[in-house]
Design a protein around this nucleic acid. Sequence first.
DNA 1: AGTGCGATTGACT
DNA 2: GTCAATCGCACTA
Length: 213
Amino acid sequence: MDTNRTQARLNISAVSPIVTLTREELPVDTEGLARFLVGKSLVAETPEGRLIGRIVETEAYPPGDAAGHAFRGQTPSNRSLFLERGHAYVYFTYGSAYMLNVSSERPGIGAGVLLRALEPLEGIPFMARRRRLVRLRDLARGPGRLTRAFGIDRTHDGLDLCEGGPLWLGSRAGPVGVVETSVRIGLSQEKDRLLRFYEQGSPFVSGPARLRT
DNA sequence: AGTGCGATTGACT
DNA sequence: GTCAATCGCACTA
């Protein structure tokens, strides 16, 4: 028996193929995009290697939303939210956390989808090295944690996530669980709108327990 | 130029 | 469960 050949086959089956999401596949409306992205993948091409995480939690910040960063109009720091859908908007907050959004809607409309949690799939040792803790469950559970694990910062702001560059959105074969809805986390305005989407029962989802089942 | 405040996290009781 | 650290940005003067 050819051990190498067997090993290669096993590796291929262990990591199912991943393809780039095209812009045409992305729903134009923010809420639809937020729901659509649950179960898709985020891929980062880093110097150490490829990182893949399965998106298990998102939040929509649609046009006109008082809680959205685009609400008071376009500024130098939020301009990426106004790009055509599928571009990265990276924001820095609380003096410590970067957050990754996918721009939505038509060009010139300020709106986006916040990626809040990933299920680590590939490159886990590299993610663990960037984070200080070891528990797999906590590697990318939270918007600031996932950018930390993936090495995402303001240099990624404005990147086209449908181009297959250093950061891109992908789709893999495999089942997607039930997508549940809830209020968004950590807001002082528009806090009653059901614009958070997550995979029901996933241990990789963030937030208080009552917002995870 | 000064001020207030987060789409959070990690440490601690 | 509670709580403080931390800093870029928008806003006021």
